[in-house]
Structure formats: C-alpha cells, structure tokens
Design a protein around this nucleic acid. Structure first.
Lengths: 226, 226
DNA sequence: CGGGACTTTGACACCTCTCAACTCTCGTGG
DNA sequence: CCACGAGAGTTGAGAGGTGTCAAAGTCCCG
C-alpha cells in the first residue's frame, strides 16, 4: 500500500532496497480487472509487486467496498493472519508479481535473506497502515488528497518538463474509498488544489505537480517532527 | 490494539490461543503513566501484554497526539520497521509485559514456537489495523462508539448480574483520538447510546452493556458477511 | 454519431467540530 | 468537616465541512 504523508522516514520506506528478483524466479503476470486473490481464498502466499498497480479491498456488511490499500512496485501484498484471505486484491494496471510461499516461514525451507525480507515487509505494512490511519483519522478532505497525491508523485511520478506528472491508475471512487471520503468530495478537493495552482490538470487522470513542497505542507505531515 | 467491529473471524482473533508465558520468563511490571517505549527509542523488542492496558500513540507535526491503538492482555506491541520507534507506548492500567528480542528473528536464536508466535502477532496486528481503518473510514460517531464498546466488552468486560460491565481504562480524549472524533462528540455518542437503553451508566467510566446484539448492529460490522 | 461510465459542479441537509458554560468528582487545605 | 479549585465529562448553540441528491459535462468505445 504505502499511501501516506511522506516523512523523512517514510521516504526511505517508499523506496525500499529490496533484493532484485532472482533470475529464473517465477513471475506471475496479471491483467487489469483480474484478481490476485479473493476473500475466502487460501492465504498461503505473499506477493512481491514488481510492476503495475494492485488494489486491496474488503467488502463490508453494508455492501460497501472499502479500499484498504494500493500496492505499487516494491510493495508486498497478501498478508493474512488466518488460513484464508478476508480481503480481496485485484489489478488496476497490468502487473507482475513474485509469489512467495508464506508457510515456508514456519518450516524453515526459506532462505534467511528472503525470510528477513518478508518480515521487514510485514513490519513496513504495519507502519504504513499506522500512517494511513493518521491520515484518515483527522484531516480535512483537501489535506488527505494533498497527502495522497504527494505519495503518488513519489511512487509513480514521471518527469514532465521541470515538473512531475502523475497518472492516476485508480478511479475517484477508489480514492474516496481509500481516504474515507465520497467521490464528490474527492473531486472537489482535487479541483480546489488545481485552482490553488498547486497541481495542473492534463486530463481527469493525469495531474502535474506544480508545487510539491506546498502540497506536502497542505497535507500537514504525519508522524514526528515539529 | 484490537479495537474493532467484532465479526466471527475477529472474535477468534480477539481471544488468541497464545502459549502461556513460560515459568521463569522475564516479566516487566509497569505503573500507570510510565512509558514502555518512546519515539526515538531503540526498537529491538516486542512486548507481549500479560495484564493491564497500554496506549500506543504518535505525535503529529501539528502537535496533536494521535492514539493508534490500545493494547490488552494477549496483544503484542512494539512492532517497528526501523531501528527506532516512531510511536510511543505508555501505561493506562498497571501492566505486566513479556519482552521478546525482535532481532533474534534474524539470527535464528529464537525457538520456532516463539518465532511463529511473533509472526502471527505481526499478522494479527495488520489485520487489526485494517479493521480499525474500516471503522474510522466511514462510520458515524455513534457507530464507532458502538463498535468500540462492543470490542471493549469482549476484551475486558466483567460479569454484572446478567449483563456485562466495562470499566473504561482510558479518557474520553483517548477514545476521541483513537476513533478520529472530538471528545465532545464521543461524549454525545455515549449519551445517545445510553438514552437508547443499549448501555447503562454506572459512572463516567463504568458502563453496563444492556443489549450487546443491538450494540453490534449499531456498529454496522466490519468485514464480509451480508 | 450515440450510448454509457466516469467526473465535475451545484444545492441542500446533516453531521461533526469549535467555542462555551455548566456539572461532577476528587483531592487539597483551611 | 466543609470549602475551594483543578480536571474531566457533559451539554448547548453556532459555524463549517462533508455526504447526499441531482444535473450537466467529459471521455471512451462501439
């Protein structure tokens, strides 16, 4: 996932120094709209995202679909504490993932490096969710969007002249579900940021970050610091 | 932590079948107000809560103190992905905790049972935060309080005639910070639930759950199901 | 060119936050 | 023993932000 207000610390997290996928390692290719796993599926693997974008969701009792996280290259998905998944993971942008046998942690068949990597991934996941929690639990809609865009810019921003362009791989509805807002409020917040000239709109899903610093300031920041 | 809408699944999570603390194992005793760890402290241990109540917080850049989680007996605290903590953990109710060397996971000095237990704890932590996220990200104040009280009733409720009594170990301010509300809204929501006769007030911090089922229904539920 | 899904914008109602006053409890000191 | 004061909790009124409903605009694809 890792959608959060970027601090010194989280920046480091956002670009983790993962060991390169080994040559000959199994890589699954996933098309947009397909599911990596569904609720009820056996949870015996964790997936390392190599490319693309995934969406982690859960279905609430009231029928709503809550977005828990987005997964970008470098992230791990599929953590579950039971024998089966209670969340669903589908593909937003054509993705490649490396499956790791999760159960292998228990029987010692896993080499130490990968073992440690998975553990670190789990811890990073906890940290990410903590930061996400902070974001959802006490910021205005504009602050959440600013925070969201800042992270997206770092994760999948492309150079665009002297600026950074971000092509949103998810719908407004997804963003809304992720940030705990309605689609209309998301739209309004983005419009607001655009009229403030912090971001420019190329089209609905392509934004150019004009003032990254101001955007982060708007976000209000997550942990520590002054 | 584990403050969430209790589903079939999470019930199982809330009362984990942990191996009993071994005889002769080191147990730290903590008084209310003391810190188990602070932001910046070296993060080389994870603590298993045996008794008492802990509070996990982080300080935001704007000075506000956000409550990330409450920890009850059976929970683990102290997960961190870096070498030092970015969160703080202090004591609300006299607690006993068992420290586990986290780094031991890497060098294989840890026995397999404990290893697996720590891993499960980390996964449960992820799951808990996911559920908490759902709760904070799209419920009314009354639903959040209902959800919160339901979990508290299961975690530290005591028999009270035919009902269950819950003595809140934390302040309104803590609850507010945890649920992403203001103290006034927390107070109002509790009052609301009381006037609806779902809960009775013995005093400000002691509540008697009169209709647990109705309370859970109000909470709206977390994952899956209808 | 037309249909459909998504996005944007507007108007309004509702919920929550903020500010403020009041109550309650509890510990201190006269 | 009672009065006082501090802190926490409750309750009220008003303002602001967000959700909801509705309609118009945009984009993509058949």
């Amino acid at each position: 996932m890792v959608i959060n207000s970027p601090t010194e610390k989280s920046n480091r997290i956002l670009t983790p120094t993962l060991s390169k996928p080994k040559a000959g390692k199994v890589v699954r290719r996933l098309k947009p709209g397909s599911y990596l796993f569904r609720a009820g599926d056996e949870a015996n693997r964790v997936y390392q995202v190599v490319s693309g974008v995934l969406r982690l969701t859960c279905v609430l009792k009231n029928g709503h679909r809550q977005v828990i996280a987005f997964s970008f290259p470098g992230d791990f998905v599929g953590f579950s504490n039971g024998t089966e998944h209670s969340t669903e993971c589908d593909v937003l942008e054509t993705a490649r993932v490396i499956p790791h046998r999760w159960g292998a942690l228990d029987n010692g068949t896993l080499d130490r490096a990968m073992h440690q990597q998975l553990m670190q991934a789990a811890l990073r996941e906890i940290m990410n969710m903590q930061e996400h929690l902070v974001m959802v639990g006490g910021k205005t809609s504009v602050a959440r969007i600013a925070s969201f865009l800042s992270v997206l810019a770092e994760r999948l921003g492309e150079p665009f002249g002297q600026y950074t362009k971000v092509t949103l791989p998810m719908s407004r509805s997804d963003i809304a579900g992720f940030l705990g807002l309605s689609t209309e409020t998301v739209s309004r917040a983005i419009s607001q940021i655009c009229t403030d000239n912090l971001v420019a709109r190329e089209n609905a899903n392509a934004l150019v970050i004009l003032k990254p610093a101001a955007l982060k300031a708007l976000a209000g920041g997550g942990f520590e610091g002054l």
